[in-house]
Design a binder for these strands. Sequence first.
DNA 1: GTCGTTGCAAACGGTTTGCACCGTC
DNA 2: GACGGTGCAAACCGTTTGCAACGAC
Lengths: 127, 127
Amino acid sequence: MNHSAQRQAILAQLRSVTCHPTADELHAMLRGTMPQLSLGTVYRNLDLLTRNGMVLALHTAGAQKRFDGNTELHHHMRCESCDRVFDLHSLEHAGELEMVLQKILRATRCHAYHLEMTGVCDSCKNQ
Amino acid sequence: MNHSAQRQAILAQLRSVTCHPTADELHAMLRGTMPQLSLGTVYRNLDLLTRNGMVLALHTAGAQKRFDGNTELHHHMRCESCDRVFDLHSLEHAGELEMVLQKILRATRCHAYHLEMTGVCDSCKNQ
DNA sequence: GTCGTTGCAAACGGTTTGCACCGTC
DNA sequence: GACGGTGCAAACCGTTTGCAACGAC
């Protein structure tokens, strides 16, 4: 794993950023330092990193997939105005939520869940 | 609203079915009684019905959107084997979950959420 | 030389859209 | 005759894939 410069750059970029870029946003970010980098390579590596559990793919609401360099369990909030995705890490009632969800996981014999809240983010609210 | 036979048929079909068909699945279902019906019309009407709140669009995980004729609040389970979506209506701990989620909604000033569980459905488990 | 990886461009697949046409008011 | 809606086909756009080339071992 991680033999190539491109792969390392993609992973590093994704981890250095708190937002959840799409593949082409990532491509645009890296174009500055890696002008040769192709979109296909970005997709290939994101797929590979996702399957190796080093990156989270948020193929949730909205048209485009978004990627998350933080693979720890956390929930997301999507702004319905700008369509960006934010982490809900320091969530109030998070412990409570996790407890209920664990119970439900057991009851439904599912093994994963994804919770996405929808609203308007602060920066969109202020304009 | 609902002036056209096609629109009524699409809505009726979606409501008469407990699964959550994609646009082309719906198109295939209706082709039998409405051989002329075009995919474009299905998309156009689903979009219209969604924006009028008569249908829920589950643009969640997976590539294709799935549509839900039941606009009441409920959660979903996606089978990772066949990729179909099921309702989790009679969920154990549902009341508990709703309470926590309402608290979180208030705290985050979001106004909606979507919870999707992932697992393997019974019919896939049995083969 | 083999293998993994790349850039590029073409293909793919779900969705949207432009257009001419039709039925209803 | 204006308008909303349709079927059809082409366009669109995010993503995947085939291919020749390249670099590390």
